[in-house]
């Protein structure tokens, strides 16, 4: 397994405000797979994604990426882990407002010695004509594409997507999903996608449903539906 998650528990707060968000979650995916994490709000899906991404700590359990335990890493090592292995995509894009599309991508190009070809990436993501625009000049879908390009430029082994279509309309969402599919095929990037959109489960290799901090369903799709055919 490329990613192995074993019995991880995570809680917040103390006393009256104590909440156990993850109550012993175990799962894992193979390299190059796309995994969708589904579940209602507050179920713990984003927390699971964040712990895998090293943005949040766990109370117990283990998270192994390529057989390396990341839950024991210190903040510096976690930075290095994210720098070398990860790409992130967020619901609200989080682009640097006063950098152009290309520059936003270059922000992450700076972090690696072996970046992908930026022009090719721009081309793949359909941003070539927008590369000199600032985020405020782009639509939501274009901004998210820019965010994806920024995440991919490092050619990460693992791409973590937190509600990548959450702020987008139907058409834009479909385009983003098609893009994710395309990237996975083109670059073989392993992906975790946290989403409320249940339609996505049909296009991914693996589906994990979380409910109340526990995995309620964890299964692999044998037949994948192209993103372009998804309906919701």
């Amino acid at each position: 397994m490329f990613i192995e998650v074993n019995d991880i528990k995570k809680s917040y707060g103390e006393g009256g405000s104590y909440v156990q968000v993850l109550k012993g979650v175990s799962t894992g995916i193979q390299k190059g797979q796309i995994c969708a994490i589904l579940g209602p709000s507050g179920s713990g899906k984003s927390t699971l994604l964040n712990t895998i991404g090293g943005l949040d700590t766990i109370d117990s359990g283990s998270i192994k990426i390529s057989d390396s335990e990341i839950s024991k890493l210190n903040p510096k090592e976690l930075s290095l882990y994210r720098r070398n292995l990860l790409g992130f995509i967020f619901q609200f894009y989080n682009l640097v407002p006063n950098l152009t599309v290309k520059e936003n991508i270059q922000v992450c190009e700076y972090l690696t010695k072996t970046p992908l070809d930026i022009n090719e990436l721009l081309e793949v993501l359909g941003l070539t004509e927008h590369q000199k625009k600032f985020p405020s000049q782009l639509s939501g879908g274009q901004q998210q594409r820019c965010a994806i390009a920024r995440a991919l430029i490092k050619n990460p082994e693992l791409l973590l997507c937190d509600e990548p279509t959450g702020a987008l309309d139907y058409q834009a969402s479909r385009e983003i999903l098609m893009l994710i599919e395309k990237i996975n095929k083109k670059y073989g990037t392993t992906m975790f996608i946290v989403t409320h959109n249940t339609a996505i489960k049909e296009m991914v290799h693996r589906v994990i449903k979380i409910k109340d901090g526990q995995i309620s369903q964890d299964y692999a799709n044998t037949v994948l539906k192209p993103a372009s055919q998804l309906e919701w």
């Binding site: 930075s79 682009l95 490092k154």
Partner: peptide
């Protein structure tokens, strides 16, 4: 703040 968080997420120190 969110952008900085995103940059940290990408591996910026």
């Amino acid at each position: 703040s969110a952008v900085i968080g995103a940059l940290y997420s990408m591996g910026y120190v």
